[in-house]
């Protein structure tokens, strides 16, 4: 059975001034896939991820999401982003709002739910991530791992079709990495399409259905985890794996 294509990226380039970060990236991401993106720092993997929901505007190339070319200026990008959840390295919870308000904000502001519905949804999500008693706390009262789980819940509140993770565990104390990865594993098991920029090779190997190795602005290798880890084709990937594993 042919898998349904969710995101299609064609010849994506991005420059910051003179500095070319992405030099023509093409790939497709199908529904239900869990794609891990790995690579040395500064290789452009975060920029690539952020281009998928246009937080970075590509210099050239196209990103097609569910059949719509979102780089087209006539497209309402906000509508598209409603269906693409994003989780950041630094959590980026809104410090002036309670956890409940953090989760409710987008569904209510975007007219997806009434306040009552959104509040109920927030409680469901908090129960699901195991933090049911934190609804009325403020972000500053929480640990890093709790914050990141709530950031995931906040993105899930919009019922997205894909979740983008930008190094979700890099800012966490080691003992908190597990709880966040655990939640992500659950999401993957439920069939959520995920694109994850990560340094957690264990997670990539175990959870990802596919791994992209990006180096110097291009996808150098694109393979199933087992294959990629067992038989790296390029010298660069071999070097990289030898350093991180």
């Amino acid at each position: 059975m042919e898998k349904e294509v969710l995101i299609e990226v064609k010849e994506l380039c991005k420059s910051f001034g003179q500095h070319k970060v992405l030099k023509g990236i093409s790939t497709t991401i199908s529904k239900g896939e869990v794609v891990a993106i790995i690579g040395p720092s500064g290789c452009g993997k975060s920029t690539f991820l952020r281009s998928l929901n246009l937080l970075e505007e590509p210099t050239s190339g196209t990103v097609t999401f569910e059949g719509t070319d979102i780089t087209d200026e006539s497209v309402d990008i906000n509508k598209m982003r409603e269906k693409m959840g994003m989780v950041f390295q630094q959590f980026n919870l809104f410090p002036n709002m309670t956890i409940r308000e953090n989760i409710m904000l987008a569904p209510v502001k975007r007219g997806k739910m009434t306040k009552e519905e959104a509040s109920k949804r927030a409680e469901e999500l908090l129960a699901r991530i195991g933090l049911p008693d934190k609804a009325d706390s403020y972000p500053l009262q929480l640990s890093g791992g709790q914050k990141q789980r709530i950031a995931i819940a906040r993105a899930l509140a919009m019922n997205p079709d894909v979740m983008l993770f930008d190094e979700p565990t890099s800012a966490l104390d080691p003992e908190m990495v597990g709880e966040v990865l655990g939640l992500m594993k659950e999401l993957a098991a439920e069939g959520m399409t995920m694109v994850v920029v990560t340094h957690e090779m264990g997670f990539a190997r175990e959870v990802a259905s596919r791994i992209l190795f990006i180096n110097e602005g291009v996808i150098q290798e694109d393979n199933e985890p087992k294959e990629l880890f067992a038989n790296p084709r390029s010298q660069r990937l071999k070097d990289f794996l030898s350093k991180v594993l």
């Binding site: 509508k79 409603e82 980026n92």
Partner: peptide
Amino acid sequence: DNGQFEAGRSLGLSYRQTMLSIIVPQ
């Protein structure tokens, strides 16, 4: 922090909604 702005936009909020409900209060 710019991350606040990005978080708002990534949730689908428009520029104006992000500014008025997230950035300006802070």
